[in-house]
Amino acid sequence: MRFLAVVMTGLSLVAPAAHAFALLNKIGMAKADYFIAQQAYAGWWIVGLLLPLALLANIGNAVALRADGTAMGLSVAAAALIALNLVIFMVFTQPANAATENWAVQPENWESLRTRWEYSHAVNAVVTFLAFCCATLASLR
C-alpha cells in the first residue's frame, strides 16, 4: 500500500508540474499562439484519472498505517491535498476548459480564462508536490 500511495501520487504530479513549468513560456503568448499551444494537451484528460486513484491509495495507506499516528496523519494529509487538487480543478480549471470548449473556441474573456487555467495548474503543482512529500514521508516511517 505504501508503494502504491507514493507511485500514484508521484504520477499525479507529472501533469500539473508540466503545466507549471510551461507557464512562464505561455502566459504572455498572443491569442492565436496560445490557442495553438493549448492543443498540445488534447487527450490529457486521461492523466486526470490518476488523481482519484492517488486519493484512494492515500486513504488506503492511512488505514494500513493507522497504528502509527504520524504516518497515518501524513497519509490523511496527502489524501486531503489530492482532494484539494480536485476542488481547485473543478472550481478554476474546468470552467475555463468548458468556456473555451477545451481551447477550441476563443471567447472575449480568453485572457482571464487563460490566467485562471494557468495559475490553477501552478497551484495544483504545489499542492500535489506537497501530497507527494506527505505520501513519501508516511511510507518511509
Rank of each mutant, 00 (worst) to 15 (best):
L51S: 14
V76K: 01
I82F: 01
N85L: 10
A42F: 12
V47D: 07
S75A: 14
A67T: 14
W45T: 11
N85R: 00
L55N: 00
G48T: 02
L86P: 06
A54Y: 07
V47C: 12
I59A: 10
W44R: 09
G60K: 02
L84M: 14
I59R: 01
A62R: 09
G73Q: 04
L65R: 12
I46E: 07
D68M: 11
L49I: 04
A42N: 15
L74D: 05
L51A: 14
W44S: 15
L53T: 01
S75R: 04
W44Q: 13
I59V: 15
L74E: 10
T70P: 00
L86R: 06
T93Q: 11
L81D: 08
L51H: 12
L81G: 09
S75I: 07
A80G: 11
A42D: 14
M90R: 11
L49K: 02
A42T: 14
A42V: 15
V91S: 05
L51I: 12
L50K: 08
V47F: 13
F89R: 01
A67G: 10
L74I: 04
F89N: 06
A77S: 15
M72I: 03
I59W: 02
L55A: 07
W45H: 12
F92L: 13
N85Y: 15
A42Q: 13
F89W: 13
W44T: 15
A71Y: 01
A79T: 00
L50I: 11
R66P: 02
F92E: 11
G60S: 04
A83V: 03
A54F: 03
D68N: 15
T93V: 10
G69A: 12
N61C: 14
W44I: 13
